[in-house]
């Protein structure tokens, strides 16, 4: 019974890691393929945020399986640290994207329209 639960947990961890890597790869391909600065930020701002959060959440689940209750306090606090990291990424990544985009727009970088040449 315990073995079954452990197997299911590990499968879920691997699924989270795979989904995260897929979204991060999609974001990186978008960073290369899309035509201009603004549309590239669409790819990085969304796909990277969710990809990173999925990977860190998968590792958090793995930590529950990995460390036994007898470990030190600093080791047992690691899931809380990872949760804080997830919240911070959700807050900080869109803000950084918005800051770069606002700077570019206010200094007069022209957005790409349909039919223009690639930049």
């Amino acid at each position: 019974m315990v073995e079954l639960i452990v197997t299911i947990l590990l499968v879920v961890v691997v699924l989270f890691l795979a989904a995260g890597v897929f979204f991060m790869l999609a974001g990186a391909i978008g960073l290369l393929r899309l035509p201009d600065f603004y549309t590239r930020l669409h790819a990085t701002g969304k796909c990277d945020t969710l990809g990173e959060v999925l990977i860190i959440f998968g590792l958090l689940l793995y930590h529950i399986y990995y460390y036994s209750p007898g470990a030190e306090l600093s080791v047992q606090l690691v899931p809380v640290k990872l949760l804080f990291l997830i919240c911070f990424i959700f807050f900080a990544n869109p803000t950084a994207t918005h800051a770069i985009m606002k700077a570019a727009y206010n200094t007069g970088v022209k957005p790409w329209k349909k039919g223009d040449r690639r930049m």
Partner: peptide, 23 residues
């Protein structure tokens, strides 16, 4: 092509590095 593309790419590299450090 411009400095803004570079800043965006460097920011992306930084956030990916966070996950890499955890792994």
């Amino acid at each position: 092509p411009e400095v803004y593309n570079r800043v965006a790419a460097v920011n992306v590299i930084g956030t990916k590095t966070i996950v890499l450090l955890v792994i």
